[in-house]
Design a binder for these strands. Structure first.
Lengths: 205, 205
DNA sequence: GTCTATAGGCTGATAGAC
DNA sequence: GTCTATCAGCCTATAGAC
């Protein structure tokens, strides 16, 4: 889909039919003719983007593997989608949740819920099996997905900062970030005998 | 600033001067008169939003406290900003990094860098002191900030899903998420004798 | 199917009265 | 300072030729 990149880079309102038609090498009347207008084109792109990743993620809980391994697999799966299958997925997803689903029909709105459900099933299995400490699955989901989407969605900004010599390092490797998130989550959720948890510090003096 | 909420909810291109003027109860000619146009108004709002949180975060490394505590404080500080000082900060920040800094002048572009630098200094101190395992500070920064911004920026979507009865639970408490992120990060970065790390699983069969 | 031409509306900016 | 009126430009959608 030609408009995917434009919608990802500039958002729904920031992208005009003229720009899409120009990039696709056709006339802008063609876009309305084939997709029924800008809104319908956008919805088709979002659905195609989310369907792939959510469908693949939902296959994971059926595997009879230990929860920590499933969590590692889910992280790798999302990263593989973001790097190879559809580089625009993280930005599209973040743009949609930022909009609060204002653009979306009810069916499309459920995609984030389905991902949250996959994480919930994996985390609850890990707690049941004694591998994870008793942690809130929804909060785990939010930190996991948030950390992953943020990494891939901010790649263009990092490239710009690197090009102007303002980011000390070079672009971190996606595989390194996958390992980082896998280790952070699995180590951070691990059940232990003597926990050091309990310090809140919500108040900042 | 009256336009803050509109820019946060609908983005730069999705917000018109007419809408801002209407919400502020003035004429749209007034907005251009006082701020010099839509772009300058937006830049002023972004700068005001980022200045507060970045400035406060940069005071942390000067404190002579253990690194894990500083990390907990940083998380609490960002959450306090997002809940009490400026509820629109997470969405504004995410929108800007998604745009790759396209809207921003060079000075404003540096705000994310300054937050990353605070995390880097805390993490490097933790490694030096033997509290943290040798972890990449930039990757730590990305997972930390990504997880935090995602939680607060997705609150409107969650409210909508809860209102239509599609999210099983009620809205999670912000203080609970702060504790979750504090525990996840500090536990996940903790130095241990026998590490279980090393499984990559980047390839998903 | 693919194009050009155009309609009708909204945008941001500004001139000018008060 | 604050307003109304207006400008030129862009937007999406579509009618109609081929």
């Amino acid at each position: 889909m030609a408009g995917t990149r434009l919608f990802a880079e500039r958002g729904y309102e920031g992208t005009s039919l003229s720009a899409i038609a120009h990039r696709a090498g056709v006339n802008k009347a063609m876009v309305s003719y084939h997709f029924g207008g800008k809104r319908k084109l956008y919805l088709a792109i979002v659905a195609a983007t989310f369907d792939d990743i959510v469908g693949r993620a939902e296959e994971l809980p059926a595997l009879r593997r230990p929860a920590p391994e499933l969590l590692r697999r889910l992280i790798a799966l999302i990263a593989e989608t973001a790097t190879r299958r559809n580089p625009h997925f993280p930005v599209m997803m973040l743009r949609e949740v930022l909009a609060g689903g204002r653009h979306l029909a009810d069916g499309t709105l459920g995609y984030p819920l389905r991902v949250a459900d996959v994480v919930r099933r994996i985390v609850e299995r890990g707690i049941r099996e004694g591998a994870f400490r008793p942690v809130n699955p929804l909060l785990t989901h939010l930190s996991l997905i948030g950390g992953l989407l943020f990494f891939f969605a901010t790649a263009p900004l990092r490239h710009r900062l690197i090009a102007t010599g303002r980011l000390g390092t070079s672009e971190p490797d996606a595989a390194d970030y996958v390992r980082h998130m896998q280790d952070l989550l699995v180590e951070g959720l691990l059940a232990r005998r003597r926990s050091r948890r309990g310090r809140t510090l919500m108040t900042v003096s």
